[in-house]
Each structure stands twice: as C-alpha cells, then as structure tokens.
C-alpha cells in the first residue's frame, strides 16, 4: 500500500516538471493560437546550452540560469519576429509545418554538434539528497524544489496575466487581435515577447531535466507530447489547468511504471486519451480552440 502512495507522490512531483513544459506551450497557444512542434526540441536545446555554459565557466547548473534564461528569451523573440510571425494567419498549415521543420533542424544540429551520447548536468549533492516523510516514502529534494518552482512560476504567470501591462496586452491580443491593434498594441512585438516568455519557461524546464535525468538530442519529441498532453488534460487557456494536467500525467506514468517498467509512458498516453474521450475540453477549460 505504502509503495503505491509513494508512486503517486513521486508522480505528483514529476508532474511539476511536466507543468513547466506545458506552461510554455499554453502561453503561446493562448496569445497567438500557435502550436509549436519544436517545443520539445527547444527544451533539449536549452539543456545543451546550459551544458556549454557550465563546461566553459565551471558554474553550478542553477547559476547557469543567469546566462541561459536571457539567451533563450532573446532566442524566442528573434525566432518569433524573424520566422514564426510570417506563418500566422487563417491557414493552419504554415505554422505547423514551419515549426515541424525547425524541430527537425534543431534535433539534427544538436546531433551533429554533440553526438547522440547521453549527457547530464551535474548539480552536486542536491541530486541525491532526500527527506523521509514516513517509513517508505522519501521525497527527493530536487523533485521537491522543481515542483515548488513550477507552482510559484504558474502562480506568477497567472498574476502577471491579470495585473501587468504586458499581461493585459497578451490577453487583449488573445481575445480580439484587430481591436487590440486599434488600441495601439504592436501585435508583432507582443507575439515576440510571448514566445520569449515561453522559452524562458522552456529554459528552466530544460535545465531541470538535465539535472534530474540524462538527455540526448532525440529526447525532444516525447517532451513535446508530455507538454501537449498536460495542456489538453488541464484544459486550454488555463494556467492552473496545466499544473493539474502535468500532475495527472506524472501520476499516471508513475503508476504505470510501478505495474511494469515498459508501461510508464504508455500509461501516461492512455490516461490522456481516456480523458480526451470523456472530457474533450479538458478538466478546466477557459478558452475554446476555434
């Protein structure tokens, strides 16, 4: 019994990481109805950027964020204004196929530069230290830290959306792009900033993946699927929904893994499909996808 409770608790903590993946995807979908197929590959890219920063300067992975976060912010802004803004319109195909192409390019460039070897960001004792809750349940410090950061970031985003100037611009553009433009909002700039914020979340998620597990250039697509599943489970347009979605996905995967190691990801995907059948709009829907 205690083992199952342990699996569920570990799943909840993993869910924090998935919520970080999902939040980045949810923001850009909310603001510009763009689904970024390269999202997972950008997470892996951030992990590799962190690796280069750590290897060249010798800093701790947590400290590397000082460089990696601004880099990914800038990268996101340039990517949006330089390429992705030109794909947005009534037609669904261009953004989908362009981000798909970018995904393949990033994956193979990483493969060419860093080879297919598994990498890891070394963070020292925090990787293995844990606290014992009760007999049989140990919480790793690192998963706990990731979960808390995810909750804080999502709360921050939620407040940011409702209280700040930029948040209002995001929501206005999301609700009615043409009126927002009439009110003096520079849509291209707002889209650039939305992608930049999305990639900051991606950078944080990428660094935590790098510390928690091994990563390699081929890891991106499955991370995209997790992010996507968490967004859909939670319901489009709801930030807290992405946290709930991430947690449900993490719990399903951990319970699956407990039954049979081969069932870990399969159980997550099946949980997603079941929820899709029962609640097509997710558990906490805000905006409708049309």
């Amino acid at each position: 019994m205690i083992e199952w409770i342990n699996s569920i608790i570990q799943g909840v903590l993993t869910g924090g990481l998935y919520a970080l993946f999902a939040a980045g995807l949810a923001i850009i979908f909310g603001v510009m109805r763009l689904v970024n197929i390269a999202h997972g590959d950008l997470i892996v890219l951030a992990a590799f950027v962190a690796m280069v920063v750590i290897e060249t300067t010798g800093v701790d992975p947590f400290v590397s964020m000082v460089a990696v976060l601004p880099f990914m912010f800038f990268f996101g802004y340039v990517l949006q204004r330089g390429i992705l803004n030109y794909t947005l319109g009534d037609d669904l195909l261009p953004p989908l196929l362009v981000t798909f192409g970018i995904s393949i390019v990033i994956q193979n460039l990483l493969l060419e530069i860093f080879s297919a070897d598994s990498q890891r960001l070394k963070a020292g004792p925090i990787e293995v230290s844990s606290v014992q809750l009760v007999e049989g349940i140990e919480l790793g410090i690192l998963p706990l830290v990731v979960f808390v950061i995810a909750v804080v970031l999502i709360a921050g985003l939620q407040i940011g959306f409702s209280r700040t100037r930029l948040g209002r611009a995001f929501r206005a553009t999301s609700d009615d792009p043409s009126t927002a433009r009439l009110m003096g909002i520079n849509q291209k700039h707002v889209f650039g900033l939305a992608m930049a914020v999305s990639l900051v979340l991606v950078a944080i998620a990428g660094i935590f993946i790098g510390i928690r597990t091994n990563f390699d250039p081929a890891l991106g697509p499955t991370r995209l699927l997790f992010a996507f599943e968490a967004v859909i489970i939670g319901g489009l347009g709801s930030m807290w929904g992405t946290l709930a979605g991430g947690v449900i996905l993490g719990v399903a995967q951990n319970i699956g893994a407990k039954i049979d190691p081969g069932w870990q990801f399969l159980a997550g995907h099946i949980a997603f499909l079941v929820i899709l059948v029962l609640r097509p709009n997710g558990l906490f829907p805000r905006t409708r996808d049309d």
Binding site: L96, P221, I232
Partner: peptide
Amino acid sequence: LRGHYFAIGTWV
C-alpha cells in the same frame, strides 16, 4: 481535437 492539436493527437 481541432487543427494543430489534431496533429499532435495523431502523434500520441
């Protein structure tokens, strides 16, 4: 799933 989300759904 509509549009973009249909795409990723088929991948799942």
